[in-house]
Design a binder for these strands. Sequence first.
DNA 1: GTGAAAGCGCTAACAT
DNA 2: ATGTTAGCGCTTTCAC
Lengths: 332, 332
Amino acid sequence: MASTLRDVARLAGVSVKTVSNVVNGYPHVSPDVRRRVEAAVAELHYRPNASARNLRTGRTGVLALVLPTTDLPYAGDLARAVVHAAAQQGYRVVVAHEDQPTSSGLHDARMIPVDGVLVGAPVTPGEVGRAVAATGPPVVLIGSAPPDQRCDRVSIDVAQAAEDATNHLLRAGRRRIAAIGERPAVSPHPGTPGYHRALRRAGLAPVPGRLLPAQHHRRADGYRAARELLVGPDRPDAILCSSDPLAIGAMRAAFDVGLRVPDDVAVIGIGDIEEGRYSRPTLSTVAVDTGFLAREAVARLAVRIGQPDAALADIVAPHTVLPRESTDATPR
Amino acid sequence: MASTLRDVARLAGVSVKTVSNVVNGYPHVSPDVRRRVEAAVAELHYRPNASARNLRTGRTGVLALVLPTTDLPYAGDLARAVVHAAAQQGYRVVVAHEDQPTSSGLHDARMIPVDGVLVGAPVTPGEVGRAVAATGPPVVLIGSAPPDQRCDRVSIDVAQAAEDATNHLLRAGRRRIAAIGERPAVSPHPGTPGYHRALRRAGLAPVPGRLLPAQHHRRADGYRAARELLVGPDRPDAILCSSDPLAIGAMRAAFDVGLRVPDDVAVIGIGDIEEGRYSRPTLSTVAVDTGFLAREAVARLAVRIGQPDAALADIVAPHTVLPRESTDATPR
DNA sequence: GTGAAAGCGCTAACAT
DNA sequence: ATGTTAGCGCTTTCAC
């Protein structure tokens, strides 16, 4: 059986309060008593019961990060950054992997005793609404979530990123620019307005057939969509992908149908995953500042935990276009 | 403030016990009362307090999966599989991302109230020992952990996988086979014996300079090590990498020094990450059955949670060599 | 500096 | 079928 404070107190010949003081580093304990207590703790392999502590204090020191199980472009980087940022503020982090885009991963995460939840997975507005309405740990949206009037959000400007990427392709001389990334399942892809804006400013009319949906951010989705674009009539000379894995799949599709990247078709993604620095060709992309995302989101969450009624924040993280080989050639 | 069972009971005009019954789906509740209680629950946005429940019952229904923050080859697949397998058994899963190989990630995970811990990150034997000695949730090693006398383990036979991969290279006609993956920081790489065994059986003497260490399983580590091998004297005609990310980095290094894969140097990894199916060339690898790993590990853990004194198990998961383009050519 | 006692929200016995 | 009560392990007043 696990030993309790009482067991330790009995063995050390002191009261539970004193043991509690020692365990929690309370300063006013005589050195002699401290030593006795520490010896007893070691002997009994005492470990404080987190649930009891949490029940009493109302706080856990843990944040949950909800991430999709299907590749989120920069999920690994984001998780790393969040763990780091949270540690700075004295929080530990658990990652809850959400099964399906529309599942109750958020709901599940809120069944785990945590002080706050960072939602990096695509969730429906309805889910967010329910989570915010219900009493329970506060929620902060992180990454590329659509704006929400009911909770804090730290995110990149996806439309702006798409516009910048499209402009990069235009500057490289491309004119027949396709896009992969509309996700009708959850919500219209938020990058589309930026893509259209860039085209219009260049005097180009958006062609409906050049905007293809992808179910998830997986290489296979990019492959499928790109192949469809590249073997069809009116072949594009560039493809904007709403995430790097989609772009990796698109590059492979081009290769498989006998086209060269970037000579025949340029490809650009969003996310700057490490894979794109080692692919052939290396992948042009829009880098997201995951450190910024993580720091700001954790900071917002920490504030809201302390002050549930603080004003809502909507923070935009910076991004940068990173030109690499996959967009580096001028078209024929 | 969050509402409690008492609040709900008061509003519904029943006792706390009845509310508890309704919330937990206890069958013997009259339909009328059930409706009243459910209405009260909804009105007050009641959510059960997980900590109180856990304190009372001694169980959480949650398993922790400890994973390294630095790329574990197939971490994503494994996490997905574990979440799925755990759900089948009625457990939720939280992932704890361990900061450094030798950090106290395991210790941290055990400070989160969970029923059991799956350790997929490289941990030192000392850590495992402490975790097992201390009272607390049981631990099962999963993935490619070295054998341990003190706790259950479900893992692939890393030495056998290395031997099989080396044999694949030998069959492809390679003779000067190098290996990347020794990690002196934590422990000697467990694949090395298999690599040596295969060489010896082919009548080849292991060349010490052809075994290079990698700090982590990152592409950059593979790049660095491979580059060193490929620009040095006595250039190898094949490289066995102990993980796929290392192999991806190695392929890029070959390309950067003007060598062709597989013509000049063959490359094979271990793990079968999706990236290797889209790389150029596609990456030969040893596929690990993550579904098996996850199912067996969760099953073992579930058993041990119920019976702390059950006999220790050491289960070996199957693996398969997957020949792809990166080892497909005969040497010059 | 240390001890005694109350109570966080919940479930499990037991009672009705 | 529903109500009453004790207590899980801890922290936190409040005494001393």
